[in-house]
Computed example of a mutant assay.
Amino acid sequence: MENPDESIPAPGGEIESLAEFDEAVAAGSLTGRRVQSVDLTDRGAALLAADASGAVFLGCPMEPGAAAKVRADGAFVFPPVPGLPFDPYRGLLYSPDALYDGLAKGGYEATPDARAYRWFQETRTNGDAFASMLRALHDDAVSDALDELLVGAGVVGVMGGHATARGSAAYTAAARLGRTLARSGLTVATGGGPGAMEAANLGAYAAPYSDPMLDKACELLASVPSFAPSVSDWALAAFTVRERWPDGGGSVSIPTWFYGHEPPNPFADHIAKYFANALREDGLLARSTAGVIFLPGAAGTVQEIFDSTTPNYYGSRGGPVPMVLVGRDHWTRELPAWPLLRALAADRPMESRIALVDTVEEAPAELARLSAK
């Protein structure tokens, strides 16, 4: 990587597709642009003709002559990294098809998702600064893409346990919750894994269809209730539902390879998958600007309750966002998070933004009530 300048000029906007690249070239200049993971092998003539001063090319394949020319213009060129099972410079979020490519032929172990997890397991503790840098680049690019996607959206987080089995009453209730929230115009966001998280994303996917579709989908999925012992069978069942009803609604999921033994569910159309779980946890809650609904869960869900409580308590993200806990017995007797949450909220602005309800069916109306305060 070479550049005659000592500093990187201010960005002139991101380019994340060939169409955007062609548009920029037609406008006459690439000056200051950030080009992310766009294959420019067939755009040699355009690169030779355009002014690329101050541009930054992140993981963009290009002909050697074109690369030399843009460097001479003063561009920074970060080449693709060979042999990686992921793109550290990616400009867009993942799709289910991208993470599960090759599932039908080679099983889950052949997919990009599984290969990225194996790479992470191999490099996370070996002290390799280069691998750490690649993970950081990837996660920052994912955060950037997620922020771009959610501009202006009312995002509601749905948190809950990964152990909620397909075919259970709790799974169906969580799916109906996701459908209700999506139909109200909110963007459903989950931690992206199986269980209650998958159910909420499934509900949002079912939102454009008539009500019987979701019941039928839940019946089909119940034949493979868990990702154990076979992630392949679990994921294939989900893709069977997607193929039968291909025009599902959108939602967001934010999983992590830190818990790579839990696969991402295929029902969110936009998947922000991270290597760093801390970034993933905080990022999910920080982006849930319309509130968070906490379904019954265990340690992970308890952590999420108090990760959400802390900024509400201190006001570090502005006004408190609504928090609705579902399951009175669960949150007062089994895992008594509610009494502590209520004690923390006393005499603070967040006090009017927390609620405990008995059933999932009550949660949307309670969220709306808290949001109106």
Rank of each mutant, 00 (worst) to 15 (best):
E304A: 07
G54Y: 00
M213Y: 07
S53P: 10
D5Y: 10
R287K: 04
P4V: 03
T172I: 00
P4Q: 07
V324L: 08
G157C: 07
G283K: 05
N265D: 04
E281L: 15
G291T: 02
A68E: 09
T180G: 12
L214W: 11
R342P: 10
N126W: 13
S143D: 15
L202P: 00
L84H: 08
P339L: 08
L236A: 10
T240G: 12
I8P: 02
P11C: 10
S53C: 09
G315F: 07
G297K: 07
A66I: 00
T301H: 05
R176M: 13
D5V: 05
P264I: 04
T164F: 04
A278E: 06
P320C: 01
H330I: 11
L202T: 00
A368V: 02
I354A: 01
I354S: 13
A272V: 09
H261I: 12
G300L: 06
I15W: 03
A272P: 14
A268P: 02
L325I: 00
W245M: 13
S143H: 13
S184C: 11
A286V: 08
L284K: 01
S371I: 01
S230Y: 12
L149Y: 09
S143P: 03
G127W: 03
Y209H: 11
Y108Q: 00
D211L: 09
G32W: 04
D139G: 03
A116R: 04
D128S: 06
L340H: 00
C60E: 09
F130I: 07
V241P: 15
R328L: 03
M323C: 08
D358P: 06
S230A: 10
G12P: 02
A222V: 13
G195W: 04
V241W: 03
P208Y: 10
V70K: 01
V142F: 05
E361P: 08
C60Q: 12
D113L: 14
T256S: 12
T31F: 01
T172V: 03
G249E: 07
